[in-house]
Amino acid sequence: MKVGVVTFPGSLDDVDARRAVTFGGHEAVALWHGDHDLQGVDAVVLPGGFSYGDYLRCGAISRFSPVMTEVIEAAGRGMPVLGICNGFQILCESHLLPGALIRNDHRKFNCVDQRLRIENTSTPWTSAYEQGAEVTIVLKNGEGGFVASEDVLDQLEGEGRVVARYLGDNPNGSLRDIAGISNERGNVVGLMPHPEHAVEDLCGPGTDGLGFFTSLAAVAFA
């Protein structure tokens, strides 16, 4: 598959995400925030970083960048979209996902090898995992606290749309320990931890993140 990775001004993890996409067995395509063009890709990753300097709110300005018009439209047609960290914030600001991400409750930037449980393996980004798999993936954020109204949280839980949940101490104050969620259809996934930093043994806490990028192949050949 051709997987596009968008670079916004201030993106940090776009190159790592493209590398992880390649490790997952796909062709990585660099997409530019200022282009109204997805270059014919089959899926899109919105990477981590501090797009537009996190000015106004994290993801608030990126959400209106030209490429997002195309991403939002493609997501509506069912194209798989994965937002990692800042990408998750952009997806919430775009209203492709419910809720919002606010400053960590302890007010410090957090960088840890985080234990997670994968709770929904029916999305195109998580189908390579066993249901309930416990994995370790890097978490690094200052504004990773997931918040939503009680009704929305109940709906997410009821519809099985909590994709990943933090294990152990809650690292950022996210309500109900939520680390990642999906939209109703399941094709759009937002995740605070960084699977693209856990795809090779040389660096990072292992290769537990690779599944997010190999899952797409299973979708392609299903």
């Binding site: 606010i102 409750d105 007010r107 918040v147």
Partner: peptide, 14 residues
């Protein structure tokens, strides 16, 4: 302003 029910860590720091 942050909604009353939303945690405001910056306000807490001040």
């Amino acid at each position: 302003m942050p909604k009353p029910e939303i945690l405001d860590p910056q306000g807490k720091a001040v």
